[in-house]
Design a protein around this nucleic acid. Structure first.
Lengths: 219, 219
DNA sequence: TCCTTTTTGTTGTAAAAACAACAGACTTGT
DNA sequence: ACAAGTCTGTTGTTTTTACAACAAAAAGGA
């Protein structure tokens, strides 16, 4: 458990909190560690949540498969990101999507009630965590809205440009790796893989970008 | 100002707070009222926010126009809903979209810092508001994810079914009105209006639904 | 009321995407 | 090293969507 404190320290939720403070909070917040193999389900659609979770190792996909087997990847969760936080409100509906390990992953569970109910004595920094929680969910919110903007684009090409540009900006370089293979990227952009591959090739021919596997360079 | 207290009382943010408590908080939170005519901009892309806003009259669209004049409506804000809350975090980027009055509207502005910084004495209920704020943004989050699910559908027909089903569920009836005209619905679903109109007609012929103007009935 | 503007549905055509099928490159495990 | 499986790009076909243009219906204003 303690070995994840350095990771937690870097998260938005525990920003500005000292290591030993985090350690004491782990007890107060009822922290638990779970391990998942690639492909395993962390959460399933329809579940009721009473925990807030932080990914401390690996990578997760928040996704949904429809009746015909079409998969849609709504979000990707990377190291240090929080998830599940939107479903702990008292009148919240059950989880809308599945959460699946995209690679071997480690997740920490925290008792949600303990987080949002500021405790009386022990944890001096609890108030700060509540505020951090709000800032974290704010960031998540903006992330989803950005994704929605990608999806508002009408053509595969525009969606690709929109997404790849964001990645280039985020990684602060015109050369960057993405955390998806082709099929996953297609599922993430809600388009057909072969059509997308085709479009990528066209764009390369036109000199808009270069790529190899999951590495891209915008020109 | 005081005339909006009954509206505020029904919002998620002020849930469980007595009328006179709200009244005193209006001062503490630096509340201001602004009026907008249909089509007027409430906020513009790129702005930095230091307020949380609640719509107390009318209807707003959170939207974006691209270079070629294609409009995308990302969200609709109805009476009593909060907005802007995701952009007040210290390291938040500027606003990603425009906020426009879809009809004559009234908006209340609250000082964001005052809300998230629990004040010392006067407002006994301030702690509750902070918690409400978290639950409100949680709900907003789920709303955006639901919209993302609609958009994950590959065809216009599926998007329509996905959106209309949600409305039917939300309004708890198979007959319901939607808050969009055809062009706005198309902008909201990120598709072409005429193609969508066409698809609606086909669906009506096939007996899937009935409609007239903005009133729909699922069969 | 009449005129103007907006909204909606319809049609035909061009463009784009989905779908299916396959081959070659690359991985992985034995 | 080999076999099995996965990933990626490519092609041809079918389906769907976008686009443009227009007419009818409805709404709004003078």
């Amino acid at each position: 458990m303690k070995k994840y404190i350095p990771v937690l320290k870097k998260t938005k939720l525990f920003a500005g909190i000292a290591n030993d403070e985090i350690a004491s909070m782990l007890l107060c917040l009822d922290a638990q560690v779970h391990h998942y193999k690639k492909g395993e389900y962390v959460l399933r659609e329809g579940e009721h949540l009473s925990n807030i979770m932080i990914l401390v190792g690996g990578r997760l996909h928040i996704q949904k498969d429809d009746y015909w087997g079409n998969r849609s990847i709504l979000e990707q969760i990377s190291m240090g990101e929080m998830f599940g936080e939107a479903y702990i409100a008292p009148e919240s509906e059950p989880l809308l999507n599945d959460v699946v390990a995209a690679e071997d992953s480690v997740v920490m569970f925290f008792n949600a009630k303990q987080i949002i109910t500021t405790c009386s004595s022990a944890c001096r920094f609890h108030t700060m965590v509540v505020q951090n929680l709000f800032f974290s969910i704010s960031e998540k919110n903006r992330k989803v809205v950005r994704k929605l903007s990608h999806m508002s684009k009408r053509s595969i090409r525009e969606k690709l440009i929109s997404y790849l540009s964001e990645e280039a900006t985020r990684q602060n370089s015109s050369s960057f790796a993405i955390p998806f293979n082709r099929q996953q990227l297609a599922d993430f952009l809600f388009v057909d893989r072969s059509a997308m591959s085709n479009e990528l090739s066209k764009m390369r021919k036109e000199g808009l970008l270069e790529f190899e596997r999951n590495c891209f360079k915008l020109l």
